[in-house]
Design a protein around this nucleic acid. Structure first.
Length: 112
DNA sequence: CAGCTGACGCATA
DNA sequence: GTATGCGCCAGCT
């Protein structure tokens, strides 16, 4: 389980991220909007703390920014892990950016 | 308490 | 396409 108790909204973010289908991606903003967090930064903050809770089963690599850029790439171990994972799911990445981003986009408010 | 820092987003130029 | 600037807000110093 968790090393320490994460805030409730962290769990909400992790749950939504876990629902993203393989081969699709979503954005910090869409998650923040769906959960009414008030700020996309909260989503990034929650994902940044994934390491602290040993939640390696959450597919955080499927979350990119509103432009389809892998802004969280540097925080993976190793950094290449993020695009490698995406590639395994059939998502091509060029210059830190998801190819055909809009077509791969998965929006929780519309898909759930 | 104040200040600063972000896995962000949007509007503008 | 790039570069600023501002709003956002939890958490750390």
């Amino acid at each position: 389980m968790y090393k320490t108790e994460p805030p409730h909204y962290y769990e909400m973010v992790y749950e939504i991220v876990s629902l993203i289908p393989a081969g699709r991606v979503t954005t910090y903003g869409h998650i923040a909007d769906f959960l009414a967090l008030g700020s996309a930064r909260m989503v990034g903050y929650a994902l940044r703390n994934l390491r602290s809770f040993d939640l390696y089963d959450v597919p955080a690599h499927r979350v990119v920014n509103s432009s389809g850029v892998l802004t969280g790439k540097a925080l993976f171990r190793p950094p290449e892990k993020m695009e490698n994972s995406l590639l395994e799911e059939g998502i091509e990445v060029k210059k830190n950016r998801v190819v055909d981003f809009k077509e791969k986009l998965w929006i929780p408010a519309e898909e759930l």
